[in-house]
């Protein structure tokens, strides 16, 4: 391009031609780094990500197929593995919808209304993120185990929470508690109340307004939150480990099953089950990345009018 402009300048014989040709070609802007610096920084970043993130991920699949596809598949012939997969699906199928309902209700109250103590409420909703998963499990044990606060009461009623499904579900709900609310609140705050107010003015009922105006506006953020919530629900280890009692075939979710296999030196089987969860994580990241792409477009479109 600089050649073309120089040729043009020379042909017209203007004095400015000197200035144009004197300028060194492809000079970088003062707010950019030299190409070698840029390449070095990109190389360092990619190298770091490769070493610290990609290598562990690759290891999961390498170890799972170390002894071939037969050994990989044999891991799932074990009835305990099948039980673990089913239990994981069951726990997620209860915990995710529960947090979905909560997330939508909390986002509606927090994003659409102004009330006292709102900032404090948001902090409380974020609380489970900063509590250790082990502590999350422990608090339920302290509450519901036979020595716990409500333990005697539950025992006399014949209800088992700890070392049983309800405990697994509660611990999972606790650790995945903020995901959906956190995705919805900032978006719904940004969108404002005008669309909903217009729907009400036009005579829509509260439910219809929510269903036809609010929900379509936030559907991608909602899906995004559900995905993250689900990935964590299926993969939770610490909290579930504390409340499970490790009863094989009964309270063993997939991550707990991985631990048992690993501690029994059944590495291929452990990594085979782990590779299922890793694949779930990859699918989650893939959809998340795709949503972010399209969701950014949605937001931009929203800003245009």
């Amino acid at each position: 391009m600089s050649d073309g402009s120089a040729a043009f300048a020379v042909s017209t014989g203007e004095p400015i031609a000197k200035a144009v040709t004197a300028r060194p070609p492809a000079r970088r802007l003062p707010t950019e780094e030299a190409p070698w610096v840029r390449r070095l920084l990109i190389g360092l970043a990619v190298g770091f990500l490769g070493l610290f993130l990609l290598l562990p991920l690759v290891t999961v699949f390498m170890e799972a197929f170390r002894k071939g596809a037969g050994a990989f598949l044999a891991a799932f012939a074990d009835p305990a593995a099948v039980d673990a997969v089913l239990l994981t699906l069951l726990v997620a199928a209860i915990a995710v919808p529960a947090n979905l309902v909560f997330g939508v209700a909390a986002a509606w109250a927090i994003a659409k209304f102004d009330f006292r103590g709102k900032a404090f409420l948001v902090t409380l909703i974020d609380l489970p993120f900063s509590v250790s998963p082990v502590v999350a499990g422990l608090v339920y044990v302290l509450l519901y185990a036979s020595h716990g606060l409500f333990g005697g009461l539950l025992q006399s009623a014949g209800i088992q929470i700890i070392f049983a499904l309800p405990g697994l579900v509660m611990a999972t709900i606790f650790v995945t508690f903020p995901f959906i609310a956190r995705e919805l609140i900032p978006l719904m705050e940004e969108l404002g109340n005008a669309d909903e107010e217009a729907a009400l003015t036009l005579g829509a009922s509260g439910f219809r307004m929510f269903w036809t105006v609010t929900l379509p506006n936030v559907k991608w953020a909602l899906l995004y939150g559900v995905l993250l919530c689900n990935a964590r629900a299926m993969g939770e280890f610490g909290a579930v480990s504390v409340v499970s009692g490790h009863i094989r075939g009964y309270t063993n979710t997939m991550p707990l099953h991985i631990e048992i296999l690993y501690n029994e030196y059944q590495f291929v089987a452990a990594f085979a089950v782990a590779s299922l969860l890793a694949a779930l994580a990859l699918v989650t990241l893939g959809i998340k990345s795709w949503l972010e792409h399209r969701y950014a477009g949605d937001l931009a479109a929203g800003h245009r009018h």
Binding site: L49, T59, P133, G235, F237, P255, A274, L285
Partner: peptide
């Protein structure tokens, strides 16, 4: 690489644990 940043969020901790150990 932008998408893979979130891998530690999405990958179950037990899976990360045994992979890092291996």
């Amino acid at each position: 690489f932008d998408a893979i940043i979130d891998l530690p969020f999405a990958l179950p901790t037990a899976v990360a644990g045994i992979a890092l150990t291996a």
